[in-house]
Write a protein that binds this DNA or RNA. Structure first.
Length: 287
DNA sequence: TCAAGGGAGAGCCTGGGCCT
DNA sequence: AGGCCCAGGCTCTCCCTTGA
């Protein structure tokens, strides 16, 4: 199936009835996601796309080399082949379950998988220096709810105990270290969910859908739109996870993690190109 | 045809400056 | 003072071009 004409923010939907239904849903601000929460035409388009290519990150050794040659050497000679390999999700999930691998090495593997700031050595040095502060929380992740875990992360941030790591990478740790039903929330997942949410679209003067982020979003990007805002709470994160799960059936996916893979897509996909065309620097507007 | 080189795009936090 | 915004950081990978 091709991309529907009405998909884009400045293009008119070809199906009038669909347009009416979609527009009616634009003003739905319900916090609990339901079918009208999302733009149905976008969901249908997404469902029709071919499976995205698998994400490929860095090896832990390569990542470590971006800020510490000593650490890179230590990882390379630690006796764990996975630290020198490009891991997929399943590989990384398996590695993170292994208690025989030092916790910080597993964290490095997750940071590498997500390509944490290879262009910013100082950031990664800060991140690495904060690991001892976050280690107790990481060990408890399997026993915490996703809302509790995210709230504890925010408390660490507020105390200044965690530098170089924001929600995008903490949620990766939540996912890989076994916090139940936690999903990764990075800029692309945030953008995907904001774009799918019908309340963030309006009808412009020429009758076309126009992307305008409303004020009621539980997902908030940082300024410039490349990071997750520090103002997101545990409740906000919980609402995000519920939204992901609400898309399992509409998108025909297996579970929330599968939805996340689908929405994250790959950097060259049609879906990603669509997201990039939207204006993420716009301030939120009150309806 | 293949190897080498170059350009562009991918990732995201921080610091600092401007604005209200 | 706090909100808002932008530039900086600068490696790895992919893809296209060039030259042997």
């Amino acid at each position: 199936m091709r991309r529907p004409k009405g998909m884009g923010p400045s293009e008119k939907p070809s199906d009038t009835s669909l347009q009416e239904k979609t527009m009616a849903a634009f003003h739905s601000n319900a916090r609990q996601p339901n079918q009208s929460t999302f733009r149905e035409d976008l969901v249908a388009w997404l469902r029709s796309l071919k499976a995205p290519k698998a994400w490929v990150g860095l090896t832990a050794v390569t990542w470590a080399r971006t800020f510490s040659s000593d650490l890179a050497t230590r990882l390379a000679s630690a006796g764990y082949a996975e630290l020198s390999q490009h891991l997929n999700r399943q590989d990384l999930l398996a590695l993170c379950k292994r208690s025989d691998v030092p916790l910080e090495y597993r964290v490095a593997a997750v940071m590498a998988w997500g390509r944490s700031n290879p262009r910013n050595p100082q950031n990664n040095r800060n991140l690495w220096a904060s690991i001892s502060n976050i280690a107790p929380l990481l060990k408890r992740l399997p026993e915490l709810t996703r809302k509790q875990a995210f709230a504890e992360f925010q408390r660490l941030i507020a105390r200044g105990a965690l530098q170089g790591m924001r929600a995008s990478f903490f949620t990766k740790l939540m996912f890989f270290f076994g916090c139940p039903h936690a999903y990764i929330l990075d800029q692309w997942m945030a953008k995907a969910m904001l774009a799918l949410r019908a309340a963030n679209w309006r009808v412009s003067v020429d009758g076309n859908p126009k992307f305008v982020r409303s004020a009621g979003n539980f997902i908030r990007l940082g300024y410039g739109g490349t990071s997750i805002a520090l103002t997101m709470s545990g409740d906000d994160y919980e609402a995000y996870c519920l939204s992901v799960e609400a898309l399992v059936r509409p998108l025909g996916r297996v579970d929330g993690a599968d939805v996340e893979c689908w929405l994250f897509s790959d950097p060259t996909s049609e879906w990603r190109r669509f997201l990039k065309r939207l204006d993420w620097k716009l301030k939120t507007e009150r309806l």
